[in-house]
């Protein structure tokens, strides 16, 4: 076991088009472990611990695949190496998540008055 494994992301299923950051990633080379299809990818931007990195270019309207199943749909064109989260994808079921703060997840649609 190596907790110091830097710049690593975990691909769960061979058909996935995203991998999960095992620790905060900086822009640059990232090693892919798990069911990796390629040994590494270039991160285009910093990606927080546990967040997703695109393993290939994903067109708007195409499914985001993790665990080998669609976990939502791309809302814009996503370039390989980009951070994948609420700003570029949405749930196929839950409409509310589109109204949450990107960084904190805090709802911005509830009125406190």
């Amino acid at each position: 076991m190596n907790r110091e494994q830097k710049q690593t992301a975990f691909q769960i299923h061979p058909s996935d088009n995203v991998a999960t950051a095992l620790g905060a990633l900086e822009a640059g080379r990232v090693t892919i472990t798990g069911e990796a299809c390629a040994p590494e990818i270039l991160a285009a931007e910093p990606i927080s611990d546990g967040h997703k990195i695109a393993l290939k270019d994903i067109e708007a309207g195409m499914p985001i695949v993790k665990y080998g199943v669609p976990i939502g749909t791309a809302t814009v064109n996503i370039a390989a190496g980009s951070w994948v989260h609420l700003h570029c994808m949405r749930s196929n079921y839950d409409e509310r998540s589109a109204h949450l703060d990107l960084m904190t997840g805090v709802p911005v649609d509830s009125e406190y008055e």
Binding site: S48, H51, K52, V69, S91, Y93, D94
Partner: peptide, 26 residues
Amino acid sequence: CRDVRQYSISPGNFVGGLTTIEEKSM
């Protein structure tokens, strides 16, 4: 879930890298 407009995913889940209820479900 549709009728009560509640999906079982919370602000903390999103910060922790989970983006959608489908992802959390798996």
